[in-house]
């Protein structure tokens, strides 16, 4: 049945309310504090390490994200761990709490379309995550300027901004995973556990599964097995994020996955790629990440629209 009303009426109201809920909730405050504390410790370690390599690295700003010294991991490692958790924490009860608190009927009897509620929640989450990651990004850039006493080059800022975008998409992927489960399962504990289970599977076990399957199919040490392993591991958004981050934050990265000798012919090893070339390198990863976001939101949308109140 075709509807004649403005499709997005009420979106701003839902988005503002969700943004307030996300940014003001205790769990978000705790997670943000955790991210900022870990980021500060990583930055401290990185800046101390950096003092020994100032004259050797022309991408000092970017190395703030990747430098580590035992036992403190790099900021990138912290982010790849905490950003999914933040996304899951924001999304695991975003819809089923409305069912459990019996607020859904009340809200949907107001003049808004049902899908606007879901869309508003996703936009609100995007806003909250944008603010948190932007604060972190500015903390890193600010620290770099403070420590180095030099303004970052345009290319470094562009790469850092692109990394910010990829991190945002990565965080939203996990938010949408959790939101999907919160649409499917009425119990908040179930959606939280399933989301965390999937996160553990893709973060810890997926690389092992990919390796075992690739070896079983292609044989030990074969080229076919290596290619299959890369292919399988790229099903995981963690791999997509890690490869994108590597290409953006380490400009000398010339290729991702299996490297053939023919690819190295004429290459100046260790020389950095221009920003545009790095973006081209990770274009499939970025496309896949965005496609996953669209797919997850669509799945949530379809299930939510078909649910009886």
């Amino acid at each position: 049945m075709r509807r004649n009303d403005f499709a997005l009426r009420g979106l701003r109201v839902v988005t503002v309310k969700e943004l307030q809920d996300f940014t003001g909730s205790a769990r978000m405050v705790i997670l943000t504090a955790l991210i900022l504390i870990t980021a500060a410790s990583s930055l401290y370690t990185a800046t101390n390490t950096m003092k020994t390599v100032v004259s050797e690295d022309e991408f000092l700003l970017l190395s703030l994200f990747t430098l580590s010294r035992n036992p403190v991991p790099s900021l990138l490692s912290f982010l790849s761990f905490l950003v999914p958790l933040t996304g899951i924490a924001m999304g695991f009860d975003v819809v089923n709490s409305e069912f459990q608190n019996r607020t859904l009927k009340r809200v949907l009897s107001q003049p808004i379309h049902r899908d606007v509620l879901l869309f508003g929640k996703a936009v609100g989450a995007l806003g909250a995550m944008t603010v948190v990651l932007l604060a972190l990004w500015m903390l890193v850039i600010g620290s770099a300027m403070l420590v180095l006493g030099l303004p970052p080059s345009t290319e470094q800022v562009a790469r850092a901004l692109a990394f910010y975008g990829v991190t945002l998409a990565f965080g939203m992927f996990w938010f949408l995973v959790a939101m999907f489960f919160s649409v499917v399962f009425r119990q908040q504990a179930t959606s939280a556990l399933v989301s965390l289970g999937l996160w553990l599977l893709l973060t810890v076990f997926w690389s092992m599964i990919a390796q075992v399957v690739a070896t079983a199919v292609g044989g030990v040490g074969s080229f076919q097995a290596a290619r299959l392993e890369v292919l399988l591991s790229r099903i995981s958004p963690n791999t997509l994020f890690a490869e994108s981050a590597l290409a953006l934050l380490s400009p000398s990265t010339r290729t991702l996955g299996v490297v053939m000798f023919t690819q190295l012919e004429g290459a100046l090893m260790g020389s950095p790629l221009p920003f545009g070339q790095s973006l081209l390198l990770i274009w499939p990863q970025l496309s896949a990440l965005v496609a996953l976001l669209v797919l997850l939101f669509t799945a949530s949308y379809v299930v939510f629209q078909r649910q009886e109140l």
Binding site: R3, D5, R102, R106, S109, H113
Partner: peptide, 23 residues
């Protein structure tokens, strides 16, 4: 209500039996 749900909902108030609020 299927063609103009918003206009209908603007003119009809509903108080469900299990009314929930944001606590």
């Amino acid at each position: 209500p299927l063609r103009t749900p918003l206009e209908v909902k603007r003119n009809v108030a509903y108080m469900p039996d299990d009314m929930g609020f944001y606590e």
